[in-house]
Structure formats: C-alpha cells, structure tokens
Amino acid sequence: MRRSTRVTVIATGLAATAAVATAALTLSGQPASTQQDTPAMILAHGADRHPAQTATDWVTYADHVVEVTPVVEKEISPSQDEVDRGEGLILRKVTLRVDKVLWSSDTAAKSAPTSFEWIAHGWQFTDGSMHNRTQMAGEGEPRIEAGHHYVMAIDWQAPKCDPGDGEIPGQWRGLGSESNIPYDNGVLGQGEFQGQTQSSKAARVATADEDPNYSLRDEFIGHTAEDLAKRLAGTEPGQPTQEQSAAPNARNASCG
C-alpha cells in the first residue's frame, strides 16, 4: 500500500518565487502507477485562499472554471538555505493547457487563459541530498500529474509587492483544495488524487453525504463537467467576506 505522512507546510501558499531549474521536462502522458507497492507520499496541509465548498462559493470567488491538461513541467530549485541545510522542498511549475472554459464570471478580472502556469507540490528532500526525495501532494486534492485531466476553479491574482519576496507577478490561482477535481475520461472524481489514480466509484465510497465537509466536488463525483457547468450557471454569487473583498493595501501593490 502507498504510505502517507501528513505534514503542515507553513508558507504563503504554493505561489513560490524560487528560481526555476533550466531544463524543462515534457510530460510523457503516462498515468500514475496504481500498483499496491507505490512509493511513500507526504501529504501537506495548508490553508485555502477562498471558500470553495459550495456552488455559491465557486461563483462568488472564481473568475473562470476550466478543464485543463498538464503539458510541461519544470522543477523549481529549493532555496540556498535549504540546500545548505540538506533538507527542504522541491516544487514544480506545471504548464496547464485549457481545453474548455466551462463557466465565467460576469465580473472576471481577465478573460480565461488558453494556458497558464501552476505551482504544484513536488518532493521533500532530506539527508543532505536533493536525490533523497519523497513525493508530496496537498492533503485532499490532486497533485496535478502527467496523463491526467482536471477541472479547476481559478481566479486572477494581480501582481503584488511582498516585503520579504519583492514583486510577485500576477498569476492564475485556485480557490482552495476543493476547487480542483480529477476529470479523466470525462468523469468528475475519476483520475489522479493525492498522487494516486482512483476511480469515481472509489471516490464516491470515500465520501459520505452526512460528512460536515461534504462539498460541491463530492456531490458531482461521477457526473460530467457539463453537469457542473449547468449548476454554476444557475447559481447566484454571494457576498464576499470583508477580508476577501477588502481593497489591496501597500503589500498587494506593485513594487514600482
């Protein structure tokens, strides 16, 4: 069986500004292994950017909902401090091709992209070498891997100035762990999840209707993306929380 370790990653999400390794890797299109003897997996826990439990959450906070396919990825080099310490994280910059726009907000900050870059979990390395690495995934969400397809709710984060990191370029980002859905063979819930391939039936068995965390993603397991799009089209947006709707401050402004 795949062994999983749960850790908490204290960071400002996966919008890292680390240097990207120079060699690009074109994905092979092969799905993740489904053998019982699969490698260990570290599950990282982090806070969501926006609420993403309900259809109202999606249409309130997302600019677009899209079907995507990973096409290219690059490793993101760890910081020099991590290299010197001999342990740290290696993230991935994955290029996602937008195959279809399922829904768009009337107030979207930008038109839906034809492709965009996504900062994804990669590996944790220990024992003084980046070769001693263990795969990482976000707890309760897809890892975003080759050979798979996904439905994502995304919003545009404008460029901002961070006192610690300098200027962070504008980018498309997800709402939270519940806003990314496996979508292999045209079936929601089927495909890669936490680095392991699952069927929609297995996903349904793992989800209980009475679970207090039962979400829109759980509800649409086994359905098509078009079914989800119809629900979103018939849902009115709510009122963003005060924190989410507050005007950008100096920290979120351009460094220029």
Rank of each mutant, 00 (worst) to 15 (best):
L232W: 06
R173A: 06
Q198N: 04
S28N: 05
I168T: 12
G128E: 10
H148T: 01
T8P: 06
P240V: 03
P240E: 02
A52I: 13
W103A: 05
Q135D: 13
T38P: 00
S215E: 05
A18I: 13
Q244Y: 12
E67A: 14
R97H: 07
N180S: 10
N185I: 05
E226S: 05
Q198R: 04
G166S: 09
R6M: 08
G195C: 01
R49C: 04
N180K: 05
D165K: 04
E178M: 09
D99Q: 11
R2N: 07
R92F: 04
D165F: 12
Q190K: 00
D57Y: 04
S79H: 14
C255V: 02
A47E: 15
A40N: 14
E87P: 08
D84K: 13
P78G: 14
R231N: 07
E75Q: 15
Q124G: 15
G186N: 03
E236S: 13
A208S: 02
A15D: 15
R133L: 04
G88C: 03
P169W: 12
G238A: 10
T224Y: 01
Q30V: 12
P237Y: 07
I154W: 14
P159T: 07
G176H: 10
S199R: 01
D84W: 05
S200N: 00
G195W: 02
T17Y: 11
A44V: 09
A153L: 08
E178Y: 08
Q239H: 09
P142I: 08
Q124K: 15
K160H: 07
P163D: 00
F220E: 03
V98A: 07
V83W: 07
F116L: 12
K74G: 10
F116D: 08
I221S: 00
S79G: 14
H64W: 13
V66F: 10
G222S: 01
T197N: 01
T235N: 06
Y150M: 11
A137D: 01
